[in-house]
Computed example of a mutant assay.
Amino acid sequence: MIDAAMIWNEPNNKSHWDLELDPDFRLFAETAVAGAQAIRDAHSGVPRVLGGMSPIDANFVRNMQLRGVLDNVEALAVHGFPLDWNHWSIHDWPAKVAEIRALTHLPVWVSEVGVSTFGAEEVQAWGLARTAELLKGEAPRILWYSLFDLPKSWEATTRHREAEGSSYYRHFYLGLVREDGTPKPSLEVFAQHTPDLGLCQWFHFEDHRLDDAVIWMRRLGVRHLRTGLSWADWYRPNAQAWFDRMMDALAEFDVTVTFCFTPEHLGIAPHHTSPPQRKEDFAEFCHLMMERYAARTGVVSHAPAPLRSTTAA
């Protein structure tokens, strides 16, 4: 069921990796290489993808190249939201992809691209159509973020949350479907571009939207989906049952799973953005998830997963 395995999410963004603890990305590179090698050991046929960078940064790519990360992946990815957060025009998308493509022989995915309806729903519809026009043919995988609006009672995964002002609240309006389940005008626009465009949809632990997501994706003709298997969630009660249920539900799609989020008790600091105390712990999680979910059978084995440690050495 795993079509590709992505290592972390936005590693050069302080909302997803603590740059104060790892300013030169040395610890990230060591963690990424360990995870990539564990993924390859568990299932050699699944492509490994370096998690989408945000911002798009040539220097970050050069750093990962020097530290051996790009020798252990089959693709790398970029994220972009030029109508909401980035300091460049939506029309620059081809140039942004070309800038990274020029640095490496690896394919460059666009694993998150989106437009919020914070200001107006018409802006999202136009932005989706323009994004498709600019990126189709430029990247082998283009994933729209996202299917659903983020419920207002939840928190967006950012460092400073409400202190970010309108930048924070835009996170809640990036879906093609509103929180109440009704479609936005952009949904019809998106349907015109599947399966060339896929979706990135993060499912929170025991997410009530999972079954509705499957129904919507079938209707829309979605083939490619990116989601996450959270390392931090793996230590929640009933985590295995939730992971099994989620992967069962998504079995008909080509799923890119993203391995990220450090468990608090395994981090250098007690936060999901922290580098782990031991890179081997992250590698163990990647290996276990690949063994459990990478088989292309469409059926999850519901045998108990091997016991795992709950404290770092």
Rank of each mutant, 00 (worst) to 15 (best):
G114R: 00
V115W: 04
V115P: 00
G119Q: 11
A120Q: 12
A120N: 14
A120P: 04
A120W: 05
V123N: 05
Q124N: 13
A125W: 00
A125F: 03
W126P: 00
G127F: 03
E133I: 10
E133F: 10
E133M: 12
L134C: 05
L135E: 04
K136F: 11
G137R: 15
G137D: 15
E138P: 01
A139V: 08
A139R: 01
P140A: 15
R141P: 02
I142G: 00
I142N: 00
L143E: 02
W144K: 07
W144F: 14
Y145E: 01
S146M: 07
L147G: 01
F148M: 07
F148D: 01
D149C: 06
D149N: 13
D149I: 03
L150D: 11
E155T: 11
A156Y: 08
A156H: 08
A156L: 09
A156S: 15
T157Y: 09
T157G: 06
T157L: 10
T158I: 09
R159T: 10
H160A: 12
H160P: 04
R161S: 14
E162G: 04
S167D: 13
S167M: 09
Y168F: 12
Y168Q: 11
Y168N: 05
Y169R: 09
Y169I: 06
H171W: 15
F172D: 05
Y173Q: 14
Y173C: 01
Y173F: 14
G175Q: 03
L176P: 00
L176V: 10
V177R: 04
E179L: 07
E179F: 05
D180W: 07
D180V: 09
T182P: 07
T182Y: 08
P183T: 09
P185Y: 05
P185S: 06
S186W: 03
S186M: 04
L187K: 05
L187Q: 03
E188V: 07
A191E: 14
